[in-house]
Design a protein around this nucleic acid. Structure first.
Lengths: 205, 205
DNA sequence: AGAGAATACGAGCAATCACTCGTATTCGCA
DNA sequence: TGCGAATACGAGTGATTGCTCGTATTCTCT
């Protein structure tokens, strides 16, 4: 019996390009319409190809979203970098700390409006949730690590809970920040930081 | 030319009961499946009637959601009451104030899980947004009124923005509170209040 | 050049879903 | 009791949509 799993098809450079184009189109359409409402035919049209061609490269609509999630994850890691050594964290002023964590995240979300359109939705199909999980937990882990240094008095469960609250606040306010006009945006980000600071300050040791 | 608008049909007591049953069923199914995913046939089945009968009383799926929104609005007003005279507001301790505003809202959301399932969704159809608007703006106006008393230094636009932020925080954390188990809920509510307090304290004059 | 694989097409299939319609039953009221 | 209106039914309709399939074109490699 040969391997049951479909081995990835050999791709030509053309195919790789197409896949990338399809993901570009999907990001745009998802951002505008949301996951459920975008039709695969619309994505194909936006990519300038036929529906059949889309399915040459992706097994399903969900697979497109999955691939897009992977791409976002990679971009996010790259954009965000490995910026913080624990040593820096402890010494830093709370406001500076918030700036350094929030600003790149905001920038990423502004640059990639499709991101939140996909992964902030409560109506995420199971497969998508799987893809969004790593992103979520990466962020959570990061925040938890910061809390471990800055708020050592917190017990482990408390730390987890607080991290979840912080991430939740961020995700709740991000859509407004992204949707704001250029000149409004700064003020919205300030509010976001105020909220985070208000919650963090009492914990900060 | 007679009136173009469809005058409401004469209803028998039986019909009124049916409508209420349909809304009960709709609330349950919406809460479980979300607006987009619930089929009108599923609502009819949950109400123990045929699809045709559902449309005897509601013009469309959206009309069902509209009616449900109206009912929620009324229940909310009733449950929440006119609890706050500005005089009380100024004197009250900040923590007490938060308790008095948050607790009934949390209770309402816990008692009516269908509520947030309908109105916290970003994929709200236009008609639903219309229905959700009054609820949202009632809450916003209420918070703004409180801010006017407690944070008189805020300019009008600042006040509006702050009210929006507060409502946003509440709405972001409500799903977690509602989804939490009985014994977890208290802790989640405490976190919610911490966040609100952290943001409000600097404004509170 | 020529063969086999990858890419491309787009009409159409199967399933889903909001909603309708013809008909049957029950109710309110005189 | 009888009549018109309200209620009830549920198979069916039209539109939508994720996805397929037969076929045509283009690429890669020898």
């Amino acid at each position: 019996m040969e391997s049951e799993e479909a081995r990835p098809r050999r791709r030509q450079a053309r195919g790789e390009r197409r896949m990338s184009e399809i993901l570009d189109a999907a990001a745009a359409v998802f951002a505008e319409q949301g996951y459920e409402k975008t039709t695969t035919n619309a994505v194909a049209a936006a990519a300038g190809i036929s529906p059949g061609s889309l399915y040459q490269f992706f097994r399903s609509k969900e697979a497109v979203a999955q691939a897009l999630a992977d791409r976002f994850t990679a971009q996010m890691r790259e954009a965000h970098g490995e910026a913080f050594a624990p040593a820096d964290l402890a010494a830093m002023d709370l406001d500076d700390l918030i700036d350094r964590v929030v600003d790149p995240l905001v920038a990423f979300n502004v640059a990639n409006p499709g991101f939140k359109a996909l992964f902030a939705r409560p109506d995420m199909p199971p497969g998508l949730a799987t893809a969004a999980g790593p992103i979520q937990s990466a962020l959570l882990g990061r925040v938890e690590a910061i809390l471990a240094v800055r708020a050592p008095r917190l017990s482990a469960p408390e730390r987890t809970r607080s991290a979840r609250v912080l991430v939740q606040i961020f995700q709740a306010m991000t859509p407004v920040v992204v949707a704001a006009t250029e000149e409004e945006r700064e003020a919205e980000v300030r509010e976001l930081k105020k909220v985070l600071r208000g919650y963090l300050a009492p914990l900060d040791g």
